[in-house]
């Protein structure tokens, strides 16, 4: 079964769940309604043979609504088929259903997404931070989190300070320009990058 067959099978079984289907360079992506994710994933594993969850990641479309997107990479060991599922997550509830009961590997992937992006997974057996320490108040991969970090303090455990960036050579500068303008390697020597503009966190 190829990814196209799997996508056709899924849209036959869950016609209301799939809101968009894309194909780009042989990679097939299905955009789902968030509430149908668990059913679709369970069907994909049990009936379509997607026995391997490669990764769960998340995207912050800062300023757009819904703000977040959670991306699931599915793979079938027997067929060599790769299918990508995406669900939108709004900033207001910041919640998604867990798939850790379907693929046990999702446990730590979801903890990582929770830690760095702040999306809570309903039904997760052990939703703790996995990289940052317990008590750290921010989710550092969100677009409104400054690259240099924010000061924080958990007494006896860890503290953090703002790192000095000073327009250094490795720092992408947020501007209204294209990717080429933002790209640090595109700046000429001696050229001062514009001031960093980060919206304040509420």
């Amino acid at each position: 079964m190829t990814a196209a067959d799997a996508a056709a099978s899924l849209s036959g079984k869950f016609p209301a769940a799939i809101t968009a289907e894309k194909e780009f360079r042989g990679e097939r992506t299905l955009v789902l309604r968030a509430d149908s994710l668990h059913d679709v994933c369970a069907f994909a594993k049990e009936s379509l043979g997607f026995d391997y969850l490669i990764d769960i990641s998340s995207v912050d479309h800062f300023g757009a609504e819904p703000r977040f997107e959670v991306v699931y990479e599915l793979y079938s060991m027997n067929d060599g088929a790769h299918l990508r599922l995406k669900i939108p997550v709004s900033e207001d509830d910041c919640e998604a259903a867990t798939v850790s009961d379907i693929w046990p590997t999702a446990n730590w992937h979801e903890r990582e997404v929770f830690d760095l992006m702040g999306i809570r997974f309903q039904g997760h057996p052990d939703l703790r931070r996995i990289l940052m320490w317990e008590g750290y108040p921010y989710h550092p991969l969100r677009k409104d989190f400054p690259l240099g970090g924010r000061p924080s303090d958990v007494p006896g455990l860890a503290f953090s300070e703002t790192a000095p960036l000073a327009g250094g050579p490795f720092v992408t500068v947020p501007t209204d320009g294209t990717t080429q303008v933002r790209e640090p390697r595109a700046r000429h020597a001696g050229e001062t990058p514009g001031p960093a503009k980060f919206p304040d966190e509420p």
């Binding site: 989190f145 690259l147 240099g148 970090g149 953090s160 300070e161 790192a163 000095p164």
Partner: peptide, 8 residues
């Protein structure tokens, strides 16, 4: 590592 996670 001019980073939020690293002591400078």
């Amino acid at each position: 590592y001019r980073s939020y996670a690293v002591l400078q």
